[in-house]
Write a protein that binds this DNA or RNA. Sequence first.
DNA 1: AACAAAAATGTAAACGTTTGCATTTTTATT
DNA 2: AATAAAAATGCAAACGTTTACATTTTTGTT
Lengths: 379, 379
Amino acid sequence: MQTFTFLLNPQKIHQVPDCSRHMQDSKLNQLEQRLKRPRSRKGAPGILDVALRAGVSGATVSRYFNNPNVVKPTTRRRIELAARELGYIRDRVAGALHGKMSGTIGLIVPTIDHAIFSELIEAFSSQLHLHDRTMLIASHNYDLEREVGIVRSLLERRIDAIALVGRDHSVAALEMLRVRRIPVVSLWNAEGVSGIPSIGTDNRQGAIDVTQHLINLGHHRIALLFPDTQFNDRARDRKAGVISTLAVAKIQVPEYWDRRCPYDTAQAKAVAMDMLQRNAPSAFICGNDIIAHGVIHAASRLGIRVPADVSVVGIGDFKGSSAIEPPLTTVRLPARRIGQVAADTLIDKVTLKNMAQLPDRIIPTQLIVRESTAAIANG
Amino acid sequence: MQTFTFLLNPQKIHQVPDCSRHMQDSKLNQLEQRLKRPRSRKGAPGILDVALRAGVSGATVSRYFNNPNVVKPTTRRRIELAARELGYIRDRVAGALHGKMSGTIGLIVPTIDHAIFSELIEAFSSQLHLHDRTMLIASHNYDLEREVGIVRSLLERRIDAIALVGRDHSVAALEMLRVRRIPVVSLWNAEGVSGIPSIGTDNRQGAIDVTQHLINLGHHRIALLFPDTQFNDRARDRKAGVISTLAVAKIQVPEYWDRRCPYDTAQAKAVAMDMLQRNAPSAFICGNDIIAHGVIHAASRLGIRVPADVSVVGIGDFKGSSAIEPPLTTVRLPARRIGQVAADTLIDKVTLKNMAQLPDRIIPTQLIVRESTAAIANG
DNA sequence: AACAAAAATGTAAACGTTTGCATTTTTATT
DNA sequence: AATAAAAATGCAAACGTTTACATTTTTGTT
């Protein structure tokens, strides 16, 4: 609620921007310029305006902003006052030019518009803001070619560090980052890629947990509904976990129960309805909660009771999974935590210049048993 | 998939940029440094390295990147080659310093982790990328104080323009933007704030449409489930639309059917269960789809049929609203379109420097009648 | 072939900070 | 009070581009 007073000197005089040898004029002009108007672009005051007003040199003002305690308290107050009166805002761009950090950190996600990533993004962004950093974010829609362009674009903006979601990345992008020694972390997966530390969760383990849960309940007629695993390492890991666990229990999934399904509730619902009407399994394992929601809706539409007639598990514990009817048994992925840890890690790396390779951080998943699963009646 | 070869020319000789008298050591160091590594920060080549390799001046290289068709095709190719060989990446920070646009545009949203905003964000971001711009995004969680800090922070990063979601903004923030003549648009609402053009949708009209739909079906025992309207102008507009439409139809909403409900399916479910068990209305109007989902789940849990026993409408047409059982009658808000138009508008304003006040853009809503509403049996 | 006009390129001064070094002021020590 | 040491400040050269303006090269015309 503080009031800024923007002092604009009305009788601005601008002389010719004389750029030639004989410096006499030039020097004078410069001086004049500085006296007459709040110099610098767009009428915004610069560090020198503040300095002038506070009766110190620009260097001192700069120091005041970067390391206040090296300037004398008296001076400090004068600068503070001057800055406030002029409505001064630092220009980090100019600062960054000088080899300083830009204060921006990049985040590349497959897509922003996705329940689980938006949680991650929000957490990452908030954590950065807490430390006076800004986030540059971009999405590539699972297109590694685009990822290269995005990395380049972020590099052009001098990001100090970058977080990449997923394990599959374009070699060119990684190489650009390596050459420039930009700290990188890989998010979401347990194990990272060559030389890139990862902060993530064990997707495989999460999948194992829900599968085992179903097996424990006596299910063996189990259907799988997973997204395309080719360009999605999360889905790949999860499905692998499911398959291996089922194998241990000697459960085979016939081909017509192993269906591919995009990340979309409506489409999942359609696929599930089809399956439920023909040859219904006793349980569905879904690649993520969004798909699981579709299955539950499909059952609801067909009057098939969950969990009495069919059990459903998801992976993710998205918003809404606890509220759906019946509440969904799933495995919680610590999206917020990952975002937060990622931000902290990168800030650390940047400020401490600690180039030591960090160990991977695995943040555990958690099986959440709700009401969409039950033991089969005739075990 | 192309391979970059990073050719580092070891025996580069550069003349001493002699600045100052007694530079002996320093001079040596500098020279040494330049011999040892491809000059400039972090081992990344600069525009001058490219120029040297291509046998032209830095100016020409700069021109090549900013306006290729002013350099002769022959030269163009040489520069292109040199840049590729060195793995050169432009430094927009340095460019921006020169008064050029920074190429970044800000977006401030109440929260990123929100179905409808993340759609908006994704669209905005994609559109910017299409035009080689980058998005700086931040969220303030409905805290106007924080908004000031965020605006300042974005300004420090020299954003070229900014989009603000909502109509309520801190005066200080707006003033900072005004002084620096940063193009601003206000998103989401039909009418903007003083002097700020808006790109949005008529929330009021959307609310009127769903309400009228319900009235047409013969409902008059109607309950309202809205978020707190104090810091949320969208919710405020919507509720106002509902109330006025009901008033025209001479329908009163008793206080116990006018309930406040946060933006959360689980909590909406709880509130709705309570209402359905005591004194059930014949229809629910929900402030947004998320809340409507909660109501539908509540009914499902209690064995109350939708729409046979109770009708439910939402506002928003979020992902999942078409797949829920029963599919939700709601009004579609053109989030993606708003994001896209916003991006285009701001880019236009920045590049054309067209400071003429733009007219507000109202993108229409659309009533989507699905299966969660029905005429009441005993009209 | 000579010349003017147009196109391409080079030169060097900005852009708004930061920071090493030099200088001044303050504080502590005798 | 004189001096050394420490703290505070000032000076001016970076940082890596862009862009007037000057200069050179190319093109077109006769």
